[in-house]
Computed example of a mutant assay.
Amino acid sequence: MKATRQKKFYGILLAPTLIFLGIFLLLPLIQLLILSFQQVDNFFEVINGYTFSHYIEVLTTPVYLKTIWQTLFVAVITTVICLVLAYPAAYLLVRSPKRWRAFFYILLVSPLLTSVVIRTFAWIILLAQNGLVNDVLMKTSIIDEPLDMLWNMNAVIIAYVQVMLPFAVLPIATAMSDIKGNLRSASMILGSNRISTFFRVTLPLTIPGMISGAMIVFSLAAGSYITPLLVGGRMQPLLPLSIYQQIMQVYNLPLAAAMAFTLMVLVFLVIAVLGYILKKWEVRVNG
């Protein structure tokens, strides 16, 4: 009887969230899915009838296929770079003295309190031909003329890493903080040095945090369009930019919806694979 009351109580607490998500997330997704199958006339106006032609166009047109693979490649590269940079940062957060730990966390999270647009414009100021980076390089005689560091994929990846890095650091730091200190001590007492202890104890126990961070970073990088639009330009072969162009310039809404769902399915597949690896790893570690 008590368990039934608790379930009802938890259901009441959960109901507002489920209703909110159903109205403002699930219903729009259903409408977008229906739109992706609707036919259009020669002026891209939606007409009666349904078709698979939009998905066929996305999955068979060489330009769109290149865009899909480029989007996934950039998301993977961004994820790998973020994980490599996030690991030492997370180690510093966890191992630093308590009086400094709060400061480092504030320093890490503070960029998230700033608009992505503002942070991206900051990169434009830094990487422009008359920007700070080129100015420093020319004044130190490292280069003779300004480098073209904007409006290319390298600039997109750099900006992506800066925007996504905190999302990789926090899960890894959480996983590191859950490691009991006596595990490292026991490993060193049994004859392992610091390097061996890291690879046999610390790294395996932080793999779940790394996978969680990879899920977040990959999802954000694959679906972002503001950052590549501002620092890379609208002609970069990325699927979010193609969706943006179909909506704002061509006004082919069903094709844009098909692109959006294709991207969402691909991201879900990658997350599902990472989730499967995470479960297998936890079973291996925990037994």
Rank of each mutant, 00 (worst) to 15 (best):
I125N: 15
L93Q: 05
R99H: 15
A128D: 13
D135F: 07
L107G: 09
Q129F: 14
L132I: 15
T120V: 07
I118D: 04
A122D: 02
G181Y: 14
R99E: 14
W100Y: 13
S185I: 15
P146N: 11
L92S: 07
F73K: 11
S177R: 10
V117D: 04
P111W: 03
V94W: 05
S185R: 14
P166I: 01
P146C: 11
I142D: 10
F103I: 14
I68G: 04
N130E: 14
D135R: 02
L126F: 09
A159K: 03
L85C: 12
N134D: 11
R184D: 00
T120M: 06
L150S: 03
L147N: 04
S141M: 13
I81H: 02
P171W: 01
L137G: 04
A90M: 08
Y160H: 07
A86G: 02
L72T: 07
L150E: 03
V94H: 04
A75E: 02
S141K: 15
A102P: 08
R95D: 08
R95N: 10
L132H: 09
S185H: 14
I77A: 07
Q162H: 14
L93A: 01
L147W: 06
F121Y: 12
F104C: 06
I81G: 00
I124V: 13
I77K: 03
Q70A: 13
L126A: 07
T140C: 15
M138N: 12
D144G: 13
I68K: 05
S115A: 10
V161Y: 00
I124F: 06
V117R: 06
A159I: 04
E145M: 15
R184V: 11
A168Q: 01
T79A: 06
M153I: 11
L85D: 06
T114A: 11
I124A: 00
P88L: 10
